[in-house]
């Protein structure tokens, strides 16, 4: 009955397409505004008019460095990381058909974090940025595979997935601390920042190494969103319309893990964005996966951008990892979700 209603709703959504487009545009405008405001705010305040002038190349010399070299890369990194996490969460929620699914719950985030910290320690801090997303992906894939395999018992119940995800995450957390302590003491602060998740100190190099993964991954998710839609309806329907379910599901999970891990490779264990953004996106634009992937990416980007803005402006002169704020907001949201979706 529920499934019928869902399919019906999806059919009727066609008629609301203009509304969805308006909302997506609105979201993009809000993100753009947040970017401009965020460029202006910081230890040295740049007025909005100057931000705009600098962006089109007519600004004063003194703002150039701040805008282009300090704030823009960091903002770009937040947007990419937030979007990657959000798209990854959207895919996982559709695939696993579990409202609590997210890269955090699958152990991807913590596995990638452990791999990166191990890598930093083994290489004694001398690491090339380009390798980070790759190393993170290896860790993220391993941890997610462990969680998924262990949680599988002829199906994956939300609780079993959650419990095993929590356990695998804490094992990965223990490994992270182990590798932190195994290395020299001056690497501890670097590793701690990683564990919480931060875009502090990102340069254009970081952005350049992250961008391909996110852009290609996001595009794939967007273009394949139709298959994602079908998969979400359940295996029987998907097989009925002629889809190779297992292969598609496997590829989508790889895509989700790659997106989230690449983000962790640059920004560390940013949690809860991959959980929250898809749910808010669903509220805004409904269940259609093309729209939901876009909306979710925009929301995730906006979310992390704001978290980082708070982290670097509210506690001046300290720079607080954005991941802490996403977790402070995300945990109550998680509890709220449990009440909305009652699978208990």
């Amino acid at each position: 009955m529920g499934r019928f209603r869902q399919s019906y709703r999806r059919l009727t959504e066609r008629h609301r397409k203009p509304l969805v487009m308006v909302r997506l545009l609105l979201l993009a405008v809000v993100l753009l505004a947040a970017v401009i405001v965020s460029i202006g705010l910081g230890s040295l305040r740049v007025p909005v008019s100057d931000v705009l002038r600098t962006l089109v190349g007519l600004g004063e010399q003194k703002y150039e460095l701040i805008v282009y070299q300090l704030r823009m890369p960091r903002i770009a990194a937040s947007i990419l990381v937030g979007a990657a996490m959000a798209i990854s969460g959207t895919i996982l929620q559709a695939l696993i058909r579990n409202p609590l699914a997210s890269p955090d719950l699958l152990g991807t985030t913590s596995g990638a974090t452990a791999a990166v910290v191990a890598f930093i320690t083994i290489m004694n801090g001398q690491v090339a940025v380009g390798w980070m997303p790759v190393v993170a992906m290896a860790g993220g894939c391993i941890a997610s595979a462990i969680t998924y395999l262990l949680a599988w018992r002829g199906g994956s119940s939300p609780l079993r997935m959650a419990m095993i995800g929590v356990s695998v995450s804490s094992a990965m957390g223990a490994l992270t601390i182990y590798f932190t302590l195994a290395g020299p003491i001056y690497l501890v602060s670097q590793a701690l920042g990683w564990m919480a998740g931060t875009v502090y100190g990102t340069s254009w190099t970081h952005v350049l190494y992250l961008a391909p993964w996110v852009v290609v991954g996001g595009a794939l998710a967007l273009f394949q969103s139709r298959s994602l839609n079908v998969l979400e309806l359940g295996d029987r329907i998907a097989i009925g319309v002629g889809m190779r379910v297992e292969r598609n599901r496997f590829l989508f999970i790889i895509l989700a893990v790659v997106l989230a891990s690449a983000a962790v490779g640059i920004a560390g264990g940013i949690s809860f964005v991959g959980l929250m953004a898809p749910h808010m996106a669903r509220k805004l634009v409904g269940n259609h996966n093309g729209a939901i992937v876009t909306a979710s990416a925009l929301l995730g980007a906006l979310f992390l951008l704001l978290a980082d803005l708070v982290g670097r402006t509210v506690f001046v002169p300290l720079d607080i990892p954005a991941g802490i704020f996403t977790a402070i907001l995300g945990a109550p949201f998680f509890i709220y979700l449990m009440y909305r979706h009652r699978h208990g």
Partner: peptide
């Protein structure tokens, strides 16, 4: 049981991040 466990782990990660 599921509510208790999930509420607990959510509150734990909330407290840990603060």
């Amino acid at each position: 049981p599921i509510k208790l466990i999930l509420t607990g782990s959510a509150l734990a990660s909330f407290a840990t991040s603060i």
